[in-house]
Design a protein around this nucleic acid. Structure first.
Lengths: 342, 342
DNA sequence: CTGAAAGCGCTTACAG
DNA sequence: CTGAAAGCGCTTACAG
């Protein structure tokens, strides 16, 4: 690696000041044409690139956005990331990506590190632990000290900022309603996530739908499986001791895995048990039967989040009263794991 | 957002020089204990964080790595990214991630942008177009002007640098051999990727295995499907006009989709046709039958790539003669889509 | 024990 | 048309 060429080098080469070089390269009309041309040519030939760190220090803008996500091993988040990347790229922003891995500690450490001027703004989806412990000081700290924040999907009501979410309550309501209309009455919920705001909302929506259709709620078939519990055992127990004619899986794993276990237990899908996944996943297209699911439009969510953040970054003053929560509509993608409506 | 607090502010507060503040915060033994303590306390209380942009300018190190990948909608790359993230995080490096989306142009633009001092080094997996056009000037330019580069998975022989790859030739050889040993003779290859070094190597390994077992090579069942061609039509044509008893899919999509089409055409898997996917994918666990595949150990590859790059970054001088290409072993994960060995 | 100065690489208002 | 100077926020060798 050669030493990087700077204005200083060029200035020395032509025996002019670095100010002149700077202006010549910016095509300033102030500089004589001859000087301008020879400097530009030299710079081009030697592949001069203005040092962006120096520019960042000067402008107090890095044109870089932080993205903190709980995981990337989840197709929904991959899609969101894709959306973010598209918009960021388009608008000339770089992305610094951090996976919190569900850990509050890492989230805090990351924000702490990012609070030092390296990014212009932050996109964040909270880790499980952050939500269960309801610890948001690091987010608020960032907003106060470092720059605008847009939260997406896994958000918190208690943090005042812009948010992009899915309407989990309504979505769960409609999903449950759909199952009821196809004749299901004993609808189970399965999830390996817990303590997440979105999970609570989904369960509320589900319960409301059951109520509205006068179906009793059976807490024993709302199976939230903690990390240290064995998934297969829990599902088998539920299938063996409870009567069930539908399963709503709240993420990819729970959905696909529950269906697999049910099939092994001899249940026909969807004749005996209907299955719906509460997330879009490529995987669901290829299972047998293919799985009906809620499409959450991850790319669209990512794009919206990035657009909102960049808008805030480029805004002079941020009026807290203009903070908004955008709700992204979901859609039901019917496949073979649920019965047709009529 | 409050104005960020700087050494200047603190210095003014205590009527000392910024040098003193800087030293006090670094716990320099030179500074009187009283001064040190009151400055530290004040800084802590006001949440002072040294501006990392200023430090980067000073140290000519940003503790940031660039990651350029062709796609993220591919589980293999997601896993690699996870591995990279783990190591980077551990060693205190940030990641700037760019998805080239298979486009040479974007790859060039990205490197151009990253060449200006924002990153200490680069991890890159080439885009399809880059490989088909054999255009590597931007990579070489980066190595010469900006910093060390480690290439992973989709690499080029003509670029001199460290590389982490899968042994595609051998792996394809052994995969083909495995199919032959389970009684398959008419082994098809299906891929939607083309012009990729790794694809060529895999096909060579496959052909070598056929040769070694005295099985004639039938080019008509090596189906590389171009972007604008209809996948389903191509596969159906192959199934209808050629005799086939095994399919090796070179990526997730081709594998899962081919099996689906074959099943629809009435073939029993693996009795009539065996299927192997040349990539690890969560999806393959849930299809019916589940799909035997090559596990490429993406996380491990990502970790290795990141470790190598950081080693290079933290090295004073890089001796080109020490560039190495590390080959990651793959393993065959047998599932239901292939027949057992005996 | 503390400060003034130089410097990282750049831009730009101010002089001339 | 061109340059010297100040400044972005920091560190550190050099003086005292």
């Amino acid at each position: 690696m050669k030493e990087r060429i700077t204005l200083k080098h060029i200035a020395k080469e032509f025996n002019v000041s670095i100010a002149t070089v700077s202006r010549a390269l910016k095509n300033s009309y102030e500089i004589g044409e001859a000087t301008r041309e020879k400097i530009q040519e030299y710079a081009k030939h030697h592949n001069y690139k203005p040092n962006s760190i120096a520019l960042s220090l000067l402008n107090k803008k890095t044109k870089t956005i932080g993205v903190v996500m709980p995981t990337i091993l989840n197709h929904f988040f991959v899609k969101i990331f894709n959306g973010i990347e598209q918009v960021a790229n388009e608008k000339g922003y770089n992305l610094i990506t951090i996976i919190s891995n569900g850990k509050l500690e890492k989230e805090i450490a990351s924000l702490d590190m990012l609070e030092n001027g390296f990014i212009d703004g932050l996109l964040i989806s909270l880790s499980e632990e952050t939500q269960s412990k309801q610890h948001f000081k690091h987010i608020e700290g960032f907003i106060n000290n470092a720059g605008p924040v847009v939260m997406f999907d896994r958000v918190s009501d208690s943090v005042e900022t812009d948010k992009i979410i899915v309407d989990d309550f309504n979505c769960a309501y409609k999903t449950t309603e759909h199952l009821i209309k196809t004749g299901c009455k004993r609808i189970a919920i399965v999830s390996v996530l817990d303590n997440l705001g979105i999970i609570k909302l989904r369960i509320e929506g589900y319960k409301k739908a059951l109520e509205d259709y006068n179906i009793p709620i059976n807490e024993k078939i709302i199976t939230l499986i903690k990390k240290d519990y064995d998934f297969e055992t829990e599902i088998k127990t539920m299938l063996d001791y409870q009567k069930i004619d539908a399963i709503i899986g709240l993420e990819e794993f729970s959905t696909a895995e529950s269906m697999l276990i049910a099939k092994k237990r001899g249940y026909k899908i969807p004749e005996d048990i209907s299955v719906i996944g509460f997330t879009s996943s490529e995987l669901f297209r290829y299972t047998n039967p293919s799985i009906t699911c809620i499409s959450q439009h991850g790319v669209y969510m990512g794009k919206n989040a990035a657009e909102k953040l960049i808008e805030r970054i480029e805004q002079k003053d941020i009026d807290k009263s203009t903070f908004e929560t955008k709700v992204i509509k979901t859609s039901l993608l019917e496949r073979e794991s649920t019965r047709p409506l009529d």
